[in-house]
Design a protein around this nucleic acid. Structure first.
Lengths: 125, 125
DNA sequence: AAAAAAGTAGGAATAATTACTGTTATTAGT
DNA sequence: ACTAATAACAGTAATTATTCCTACTTTTTT
């Protein structure tokens, strides 16, 4: 567990959004300025393989990384691109319906609360 | 609706698997040998935007295209990469749980029947 | 401390996809 | 039918996300 790998893992764990490799790289650069994007990708890949983080493939966008290990779906906001977790009851019902399955990706496109509010304000004016 | 676009649309509609741009291009080349991959991509994109076909983003693989327009999930076989449709009752229960949502991508990784059989045979020997 | 192993930086390579350019085909107006 | 305008195409260059490669550095083992 090198200094870089440690920093990369921390960056994912500290994040509340679901960062992609670029965002992680930018964050790690604050502490280790000469870290390379290649190193970030390699370590994110390894950490995901080792099961310390999860890699999520968002359609039409770069892969993102998630500190939460239990399987769950994601919501992508079409307006701002923000990725958030879907509540557990949704994955629970899905898993029940699916039965035997190795893993799944569920990505829902729906407006986040922030953007919904913003639109309401705009319509009022 | 040009000859090329027509051919590309037909290729998707005729397909029973969920072809990617390359597969479509190969199929269209049988009729129009000098069609270019760029044209295939451009038209697949347009057809998807116009709602005549659906574009599905499979994690860790090239996008695939689907003649079926109603929302539904997909199963990817980890052994052979084959993509098939999930039964309707799964999407129905998911949509019920989701409530308000623009669209979703559901990709499940699970062994297809073919590969399951093949593995059984191998174990028996 | 020397040798071996693991890890890194930086850039080249790859794959999927899109954008650009010059050419061709189609349509509309006269 | 003839020309101008529009749309589409082929082919290629560019972009983006990602992995691979090579030489260098750090860490571990003996």
């Amino acid at each position: 567990m090198s200094r870089q790998r440690e920093a990369i893992l921390s960056a994912v764990r500290e994040s509340c959004c679901h960062p992609d490799a670029d965002m992680i790289c930018a964050r790690v650069k604050e502490d280790i300025p000469h870290v390379s994007l290649g190193t970030v990708y390699r370590n994110l890949g390894r950490l995901a393989e080792e099961g310390l983080i999860r890699r999520i493939a968002v359609p039409f966008a770069a892969d993102r990384f998630d500190k939460t290990l239990t399987p769950h779906g994601h919501a992508v906001c079409p307006s701002c691109g923000d990725v958030s977790d879907l509540p557990e009851y949704i994955s629970a019902s899905l898993e029940k319906a699916l039965g035997e399955c190795i893993s799944y990706e569920l990505t829902v496109r729906r407006e986040c609360e922030e953007c919904k509010k913003l639109k309401n304000i705009q319509f009022k004016n």
